[in-house]
Structure formats: C-alpha cells, structure tokens
Amino acid sequence: MLTTSVFLRTAALGVLLTGSTALSSCTTLIKPGKQFTAYQPALAPDYSLPASWAALPSRRDSADVVPRHTALRDEQQTARADVFYVHPTTFFKREAWNADLTDERLNRFTDGSVIRKQAGVFNSAGRIFAPRYRQATLYSFFDEQSDNGRRALDLAYGDVKAAFQYYLAHYNQGRPIIIASHSQGTFHATRLLHEFFDTNPKLRQQLVVAYLIGFKVKTDEYQAVRPCADSTQTGCYVTWNAVEWGNEYPPFAGGVATNPLTWKLDTMTASSALNHGGVPIGFDRIDTAVVDAKVHNGLLWIHPPKPLGYPRFLLPGQPQLRHSFHIADYGLFYMNLRQNAEARVRAWYSVSK
C-alpha cells in the first residue's frame, strides 16, 4: 500500500478539473478548526437511494454528456460492461474533515466537473456507476502532524467500499467491470482492488481493466493484478501522472507508469500523431495530436500542449507542482482512453467466450 508520507504529499493534487488557483499558500487557511473526533460526521450514504449516486445508467446525469460540437454519443444503454468510477477531491472547505452529501452546491460542482469530464469518458464502453461519498477535505492531504487526515480518508474509503458492495449485490449481475478513478479517487480505488480483486480469483475474472490515474501505484502494489502490458490485455491496471517533459517529481519516482498513446510500459517516446484527441476543460472540441508522451521514472512526460484548455496544476505555495498537468490527466488523452476502454471490453468478451 502507499506510504503515509507519499500519500499526503501527492494526494493534494486532488484539486481537479477546476482550474482554480485560489488556494492560499498557507494551508492553515483550509485546515478544519477542530480535531476529527470533535466533529459529528455527516450521515452515511444509503446506496439503495439514487440520490447517493452521482451517476446511474437508469437516469439522465452528467456521466451521459459528451463534448460539445463532436459526433460522440452516450452508448450506455447498449454497453456490455459496467464502469465503477470514483471521483477525485472536489471538497476544499474547513468546516469539516469530510463532505456532507446533502450539500447540493458541492454535488452540482462535482457533477459539472469530474463526473462530466472524467466519468463520461467511458459512456461508450459501459454503464456508469459513480457513488457520492464523504470525501476527505483537501487539508487531509497535508496533515502529517496528526491522524485526522488519515481518519478522514478512512471514512471516505468506507463509503466507497460500501457503494461497491451494493453495486455488486444489486446492479452487476455478473457483467464485466471497469474500475476508473483519479487522484483521491485512485487512492480509494487502489484499496478497492486489494480487497475485492487481488485475492479473489472469481471476481478478478470479471475485471476488464482498472484505470488508476493521477496517483502513484507502486510496482509491487498487488500480488495478482498486474500492470497492463498492451492495449487489449484484461484483468490488469493502467496508471499515469502527466508532467512537463524533463521534470521530476520525487513522490512519484519509481511507480508504475503507462503510456496512454501506446498502452505500453516501456520508455519509448510516442509521437503526438498517436494522440487521437484531447478534450479541453471547456469541453467543447476534440484537439487531435495534442501532446506526445514518454514514460520516465514513474511519470508520464509530455511537451506542453499548444491549444488552450489544458491547465497546469498551479497551487500557490507549492512551486514543485508547476510542471504538473494533473488537472488534465484525463483531458489530454480523452479519445485514446475512450477508445481503449471500448477495445478492452471487446477483448474481454473474446477471451471469455
């Protein structure tokens, strides 16, 4: 599993798809005012209720949306697989260590940003199930002086686990499963794979692929679930963290990195000609050949894109992150990711016949 120090440094990258740079360099401004034990956590979600899900295939929601001015279509109603998507951090307040799922403003923000721009990538490959959960607040990722942040993260994971258990019992019905996530969501999804797939051969047979994006995954993270070696392997995982070419980021050093232009683990440079299209934060076009990519020491190096709409991760007081394209981890490779999910579902069915 990930160490506390690496997690607390890197999960702060969970300010996703917002383009926000409003956070102060003084992290105490976003620190909850009380100890974790002094707060009464919000009520746990009841996953039998549709309101406890940000996305369900039985209704219209943000995961059904595709980029404007494109020919892409939502194909969930005919999809042959399921997607269980765990969203990244969208809760930055200091009023509590964990989000309250009755906060409609937060829910709208989550839906309009990451559910639409990340979960929706997969709406041509599978039915999308995206739980709301009591995510840990941003400061949890900086809290190295107490166990408050860790407790908040454990509470958040408890919700994700409960949602997945409900999904398996009531929705899955033996269908193949894609796990998809980003940042804090990937921290939780990494644990989910440990508990449900790595030690369970029967459930592992249902795993199409896990897209564990935007967080470090160690080379020895799992015993049975391995990194994908090519574009159609199933029962494996994919992971990357995009940064500007030539830069290092020590917390991610030595982790697994997949090149989403070739779906290989080698360090060969993949030309931007292999990039089938990025989608900017405006969600209004497809930019072909937007970036190249090369795996380097646990990172995915890219040359900065020329089109606008793929922001760096500019967090005041954290200059080491200025080379990070964490916010655009999905957007830079939107079409490659979408097409790969479709291809792996086809491969799963061809192997499972």
Score class of each variant (00 low, 15 high):
Ile179Pro: 01
Asn275Asp: 11
Thr269Tyr: 11
Ala229Cys: 07
Ala229Tyr: 00
Phe164Thr: 04
Ala224Met: 13
Thr288Cys: 05
Trp245Leu: 01
Lys161Asn: 13
Pro176Arg: 12
Trp240Gln: 07
Thr232Met: 04
Asp220Ser: 12
His296Pro: 02
Thr186Ser: 13
Trp245Val: 00
His188Ser: 15
Lys218Asn: 13
Leu192Met: 15
Lys264Ser: 08
Asn247Cys: 07
Gly255Ser: 14
Ala270Thr: 13
Asp266Ala: 01
Val295Trp: 01
Ala180Phe: 00
Leu274Glu: 10
Glu221Leu: 14
Thr186Pro: 03
His296Asp: 08
Phe164Glu: 07
His170Cys: 02
Thr219Cys: 08
Lys264Val: 04
Val217Trp: 02
Gly246Asp: 01
His276Met: 14
Gly282Cys: 05
Tyr211Trp: 04
Gly214Asp: 00
Pro260Gly: 05
Thr234Ala: 09
Ala180Val: 09
Pro201Tyr: 05
Tyr166His: 15
Thr186Phe: 09
Cys236Gly: 10
Gly174Tyr: 05
Ile286His: 02
Leu193Val: 15
Tyr211Asn: 12
Tyr237Met: 08
His194Trp: 05
Arg191His: 04
Glu244Ala: 15
Pro260Phe: 02
Pro260Gln: 10
Asn275Ser: 15
Val217Leu: 08
Thr199Asn: 13
Pro280Leu: 02
Ala210Gly: 11
Asp220Gln: 11
Lys264Leu: 13
Ser272His: 09
His188Cys: 10
His194Phe: 05
Leu299Cys: 09
Leu265Asp: 09
Gln173Thr: 15
Val225Ala: 11
Gln184Glu: 13
Tyr167Gly: 01
His188Lys: 13
Ile177Tyr: 01
Leu212Arg: 11
Tyr237Cys: 05
His188Glu: 11
Gly235Asp: 07
Gln165Pro: 10
Leu168Cys: 04
Asn259Asp: 12
Pro250Glu: 04
His182Cys: 08
Arg204Ser: 14
Asp284Ile: 14
